[in-house]
Design a protein around this nucleic acid. Structure first.
Lengths: 213, 213
DNA sequence: TAGATTGTTAATCGATTAACAATC
DNA sequence: TAGATTGTTAATCGATTAACAATC
């Protein structure tokens, strides 16, 4: 088992998908699975699957394969899903509201604890049992409650100042839906981007460049 | 300039970000930019930037760099943003509604032309000027109107049948927000996945594995 | 024991970086 | 012309795949 610091981003990017497939097998009552079987349903090579798992430890058994329930638990632990993490949502517009209500935060170990927005018109709404608070209270709230992660659903131009504030208060993990480039500005922050329009552009590229074959 | 078929996914994945930065420079009135300058603001190597652009053609000029306006246009064309593409939305729940209203489809060359949902309760709503239609009309609509892309915002268990129907009607590009693995089931389909919970798990991993350094 | 399948090392492949001649 | 910066080839690095000995 390597030091987790040395595990490549390519491997990490595959973990959630592994976890989903393991959950599915578990739900269907499957007890064991071999890297060969997994490779078929997931469209990967068995070799890659074994390499990936072995970045974190030897979870299998020669001649048998992997125990589904155990492997699922191991992957869940590696992903930190059992670790309780508190999160705040910044920006309660269309997107923010949907993220707040749509995601099963608990299943991933997150707890949404507060919601902020700069628009006074939103500051009487309740979302998921939480009141939308004025962005002016953000600093005070974070200093008192020390949330570990912030979901950024605000306009790009508001993001730099808010991220600055959050970092000053010790929040250094960001689930970023804005176009603000958090990582470039703050290389030490933990950032996961969801750039919907980038994704749609990529699809546009595929559509544009597939016919001519 | 290579055949676009040979351009690697790593390169394609960087295109939208290049395009965004170029739009930004253009908006700020910058006329020219060198790969060195771009490398600094984007956090890439100048070498990689030149390699990436040269997959599609020589857009620069020795001793000068790249003309911002021209490069932006070239990238837009490569991404197919000028090409009009019609899209239908399947699933008008929380997520579907937000996707429909939040995205600037026109800026990316897409036109949302119809919305479908299986829940009768939603079938009197209007979203973005479009009525929510019964999923039962999907096949007929697609055969008559031949949309080029479908946005999948429906539950995983409903996805396989819907995708099957869509493929039969000639729709073979999917912006997939469900957990259904379209690509594995249909390797020839053009698929771009947005797996929000995968993204959140990845962030969880980073949070879980950063402290111990 | 024989068969199966892992964990791990070695070989291959592809992507990124470095270097530099071409040229504006 | 001299300086700058590209386009492109070569070198390096890392990720994926193949192979196989270890072992359940």
């Amino acid at each position: 088992m390597k030091d987790t610091a040395s595990v490549s981003v390519s491997v990490v990017a595959r973990l959630p998908r592994y976890y989903r497939f393991l959950c599915d097998l578990s739900k269907r009552g499957v007890e064991r699975v071999s890297s060969k079987e997994l490779s078929v349903v997931m469209g990967l090579t068995a070799s890659q699957i074994r390499q990936d798992f072995n970045c974190f430890g030897g979870f299998g058994q020669q001649g048998y394969g992997y125990n589904v329930e155990q492997l699922k638990k191991e992957l869940g632990a590696i992903l930190g899903l059992q670790t309780e993490k508190s999160a705040v949502l910044i920006g309660a517009g269309n997107l923010g509201r949907t993220i707040a209500t749509h995601l099963r935060f608990e299943a991933l170990g997150f707890r949404l604890t507060a919601i902020f927005d700069s628009a006074p018109s939103l500051q009487r709404e309740w979302i998921r049992g939480l009141p939308v608070q004025s962005a002016g209270f953000l600093r005070e709230y974070c200093l008192q409650n020390a949330p570990e992660m912030a979901i950024l659903c605000l306009p790009e131009n508001q993001a730099p100042a808010v991220v600055e504030t959050l970092l000053e208060c010790g929040v250094n993990a960001f689930w970023n839906f804005s176009h603000y480039d958090v990582h470039t500005a703050h290389p030490d922050a933990l950032v996961e981007n969801v750039h919907l329009s980038d994704s749609l552009m990529t699809l546009s590229y595929k559509m544009n460049n597939s016919k001519e074959r």
